[in-house]
Structure formats: structure tokens, C-alpha cells
Amino acid sequence: MKLNTFQQQLNQDSPYDFSGLSAIFLNCTLKKSPEQSHTEGLIRMSQAIMEANGIRTEIIRPVDRRIAFGVYPDMTNKGWEVDDWPPIQQKVMEADILVLGTPIWLGEKSSVASMAIERLYGFSEEMNEKGQYAYYGKVGGCLVTGNEDGVKHCAMNVLYSLQHLGYTIPPQADAGWIGEAGPGPSYLDKGSGGPENDFTNRNTTFMTWNLMHLAQMLKKQGIPAYGNQRTTWDSREVKDHPNPEYR
């Protein structure tokens, strides 16, 4: 992905060192590799900015893997013969930044995106070394492409899901592109105007820098471990507000 002149200048003039960070992009396209993914086209702009700033990145297409449906860390323990999700989950946990990219179908994020979020949810009961939920201290964002309305709707759903799991969401943590409603050109199609769209390029740039800034801040100090530790809550001596009994 070739960045525009201003994007390149931002990278060259940056006084910040992000070289200790890493990022995972989950491209939740419905297309298996090597078929062209328009969502990946937009992802690669964010990836190019991160890599220009020394961040280690990887793009994963879940649709290329044999991922089981479910909400547990390893679904082979639940009757599935094969589950390729655990290695992906490990990479997610090792990364400081997670960006989920999705196309729009029927106004919603893709079915693959829903599955990915469900599998991420399956790890949400795990704890970090501070007794907080394991996703604390990581940042999340999303990128959306399509030929119909729904960018903001999809972004709301994805970003809510990530923050509910424990991810920290920076300002303007989403960006997207939609072409003409209906069977018009997609993002990477010749003459679509997608890669040149100033609004999309600006928002993708802002999202990426905000993700990098916040990830760097959290890398240094994390989320303070006070008032949010599941281990402390569960081990408290006085439990004077039990769950109500329903009759």
C-alpha cells in the first residue's frame, strides 16, 4: 500500500518510538486466499503506517482456517474434531493492538466477524498477572468496507464488543469506505475512488495513530489494577450484597 505524501511525512517526522509494539489485523472477509479482499486493501493502509513506525504486524484471514463455532478457548474440548482458533488467540494475546476488519453484508458485519468476536469472547474469563481480565492493557479498532450503508453501525457493534471484553478503545478508533449503494465498484476496483478517498484516508490515518499512541501509553503502565480485579472481588471476605433471589 502506497501512502500519500502527508501520511509519509507524518511517519518521517514522528518523534515517537513505537518499535516495541505489535499488532494483529483480523480480516473477516468471506473470501479465501488468494482471492482479492477489498477489506484487506483498506487494512493495508493502516498496516503500512504501523510498519513505517516499527510496529510488527500480521494480517490473518480467519476464513482460511478451520475455526469451530463456539465461545470456549478450544472447541475440540466440546466435540469439534478440529479447531484452528487457539493459535490465533495466542497471537492476539501477544499483540498490543487488535484491528478487526469486516465487509458489510445486509447492513451488518460479516458472519466471520461475528464468529471471531465470539471466539475472542471465549477467552474473556482469563486473567492477567494483576488479576484483571486478560484483554486489559490492549487497544482495539475496526475497519469496514462495502457497497451499502452501515459503516458506523458495524463499527458500533465491533467496538462495543471489544471494549466489553476488556480492550481500551481510543478516540476515533474506526474508519471505513462504502461505494455507491448496490452493485457498484468495491474499494479496490478500478475507478472506485476508494484508495484516493480523502475522508477514508484521513480517518484510517487518525485511527492508526490513535491506536499506536494509546497502545504505547498502556504498554508503559497498563490499566491501574485497583477496583477492577476479578480475583480481589471473588476473594472478598464480606459479601453483603448477594445476588437477589427471584421467585
Rank of each mutant, 00 (worst) to 15 (best):
I178K: 14
G140K: 01
W80D: 15
I55A: 03
L188C: 07
S124L: 08
A134G: 06
H241I: 15
R66E: 14
E108P: 00
G191A: 10
S33Y: 09
K31W: 00
V238Y: 12
L120S: 13
R230D: 05
P170F: 08
V238F: 12
N201R: 11
P171R: 08
D96F: 06
G194W: 02
M50Q: 11
N27K: 04
Q36L: 13
D64S: 02
Q90C: 04
P242G: 04
R44F: 02
M217Y: 09
F18T: 07
K138E: 03
I178V: 12
T232S: 14
Y160G: 08
C28F: 03
P242A: 03
E35Y: 08
I60Y: 06
P103N: 07
C142D: 06
M127W: 13
G176N: 11
E51R: 10
H153D: 03
T208W: 12
C142W: 04
P103Y: 13
R247W: 11
T231K: 14
P183D: 11
N243S: 12
H213G: 00
N128L: 03
L100G: 04
I178E: 01
G41I: 10
I24M: 13
L218R: 01
P171F: 10
N27I: 14
N27W: 06
K109C: 05
A225K: 05
M45V: 14
N53S: 09
M217S: 09
E125S: 15
N147L: 03
Y246G: 00
L165P: 05
P87R: 02
L188F: 01
E35W: 04
Y121S: 14
S111T: 15
I104F: 08
L211S: 01
A155Q: 03
V71A: 13
I55Y: 02
K219L: 02
Q47D: 10
F123V: 02
Y16M: 10
V238M: 11
L188S: 07
I117N: 07
M115G: 07
T5P: 00
N203Y: 07
Q221Y: 04
V112I: 15
E58R: 12
S111D: 11
E126C: 06
L3D: 02
C142H: 04
A215R: 01
T29L: 01
K78R: 14
P103H: 11
L100S: 06
H164V: 13
Y167C: 05
K2H: 12
E126V: 05
E51V: 04
K31C: 00
I178A: 13
C154V: 15
R236S: 14
T102K: 03
N77Q: 14
Y167M: 04
F199M: 06
V139M: 11
Q90V: 12
P62W: 12
L98T: 11
G20M: 05
L188M: 14
T102M: 07
E129F: 11
T231H: 08
K91G: 07
N157D: 15
N4G: 10
K109V: 05
Q90L: 08
M127F: 12
F199I: 09
A95W: 12
L162W: 05
I24A: 12
I104H: 04
N203C: 09
T200G: 13
D64F: 08
G179K: 03
E51I: 01
P171M: 06
D84W: 01
W80V: 07
A134W: 04
T76W: 08
I60M: 10
P103D: 01
N203L: 07
M50T: 09
V238H: 12
R230P: 00
G79S: 02
N11F: 00
